[in-house]
Design a protein around this nucleic acid. Structure first.
Lengths: 180, 180, 180, 180
DNA sequence: CATGAATGAGATTTCATTCAT
DNA sequence: GATGAATGAAATCTCATTCAT
């Protein structure tokens, strides 16, 4: 799995031939097929693991900052998310470009769902601060997609915006969207 | 070109073999290579044409609503954009997934740039209504990506949000982000 | 024909596609096939013409030096032959490398035959100077091939031997071989 | 390799498609590409092997006749060379016609160099028997090319000269060229 | 007589997958 | 359970040749 992740990150989906993965893993190509039915199963599993690790580490971040007031905690979470994505830009690119082809992605959805739930709680607890007409489910989808995709595009496209500023702008986007 | 667009929309980049495209066009494979130097040139041209058509039709929309006040015009533009994307969801998927592999896309960038310019003018003309500390370039990147990606994901992922509501939410996102 | 010769000399047999020849000639590819049944016919005709021109110019040389004593005339002939080959090294390379594939070559053989005849006359007229046991036909084949191939290899491979010296050595080879 | 040699000998460079070679070898086309990176690598390797075998067998001949006086040994060598070339006329034709296209040929040069070296020793050891003004390097090039090409053309073109006579004539050509 | 778009056989090469050892 | 040689379908691309206009 480590070898597959490495090869995928470095050479992309098409460049990651099964032979190359086997070689990087130091095993015969035949052995690969004792554990995975086909190439896509490998890729899915690598991306799943990637999503899991992301989720775990965001969890840790959440736990660590839950005591802080919302604005501080939220900002810390955004900061952590971007930093984590930056660590694995290669895999992230594969995930964003290839995931659609591999069917809707359980693990990535799970991640998104957990963050969404977190924000849902926040919205319900503090509903008096926000727009009265807010369609919570729609707003959550919008925010999850917007913040997720913006973080990803920021990491993959490297626009001329500092990390600090990016976090501020994302926070502003969220707050501005929710408040009355 | 029509055949290529059709095959690409239905089977994606990899599924669209040059032989299949030729067959769909009802011509010999050799004829394809009289007009295009290689497969990627075909794909690029199809996507370019797609982007061009998008741009043209958005232009028409802009022209038609320029007289209206900003909120009305903006909403009409968002509405038109989503509707146009919906018409060619298949090609749109290819564009979003494959464009990265084909190098940064002149035509798609051009489209994004024109919309960005439009908003820039709006920002400058009405700067007193907005945050004083606004980093215009950063904000434009954020908005272009957010609105663009959200429209695309909305069309491709079909979340349970009505077209009307989606337009409203996008408008809210933009306004909320910019205002003081 | 000029165009074909040019393309052949510059790009070799495989690089000389019929379309490229037609384009270089400034005519449609269809027109080519009104005058030549197929590609090889073009090549054969070009090489024939090349051989003819070579023969004509050697003829002129022969005529011009026939009055001179044999050693002078022979040397002048060798000198002229090498110089002529040098003028069209490109075509010469095609001829030497590709001609075998195109069947035994009438015109090139004709050239060889005429030079051979010349030397045959010389041998018969001056037989008292040469080996008694000389098998004239064998000797002529040997000399024709040796002098021809050496001249060609000299032009195509450019060994570190001066033009002057090369002529001397060829003369020496011939004389040494024939004399008692 | 044997299959490739057979197909090359029978159908020439262009006629020897990789599919045909694989079929002749009784293996799948994919297997070919496990051992050779591309078609030219196959051809080069076949021709190399051919040149090696030639060299080995000439070596044996050299060893066997080294004790004999020069004229006998030289004649035996010429005889052996022609006989060896005759055994593989098909491959020889490919080598002579295609070698130029494949870049100057290490192995074939090596063969030529070893024979040349042999003659160089002979020249230096017996220099008093030869022309005083002999330019050794030029003479060696001339002889190597002349004897090599004549042997090859003899085998490929089958002129009406007996094997015995051919050996005699080549010997005469060499002696006549070198002696005072 | 000129044209050139159309053709498609065929060439080389890749790579996911199998299966006998 | 591990191995990796063998496989062959399929992909991209070329080019000599045809034939309707």
């Amino acid at each position: 799995m480590d070898a597959a992740a490495r090869v995928l990150a470095e050479r992309g989906y098409e460049g990651a031939s099964t032979n190359r993965i086997a070689q990087a893993a130091g095993v015969g190509i035949g052995s690969l097929y004792q554990y995975f039915p086909n190439k896509d199963a490998i890729v899915v599993m690598v991306l799943d693991r990637f999503a899991d690790r992301l989720a775990d580490r965001l969890d840790a971040q959440i736990e660590a900052t839950m005591a802080e007031p919302w604005p501080v905690a939220g900002r810390a979470l955004l900061d952590a998310q971007i930093r984590l994505l930056e660590e694995d830009a290669g895999l992230l690119r594969v995930m964003v470009e290839q995931a659609p082809r591999l069917g809707p992605f359980d693990k990535s959805l799970a991640l998104q769902r957990r963050l969404t739930d977190l924000v849902r709680v926040y919205l319900l607890l503090n509903h008096e601060e926000f727009r009265e007409d807010l369609d919570v489910e729609a707003a959550l989808w919008i925010l999850a997609e917007a913040v997720g995709m913006l973080s990803i595009r920021y990491v993959l496209d490297r626009p001329p915006i500092s990390h600090e500023r990016m976090v501020d702008e994302l926070a502003e986007l969220i707050i501005g969207y929710l408040r009355a």
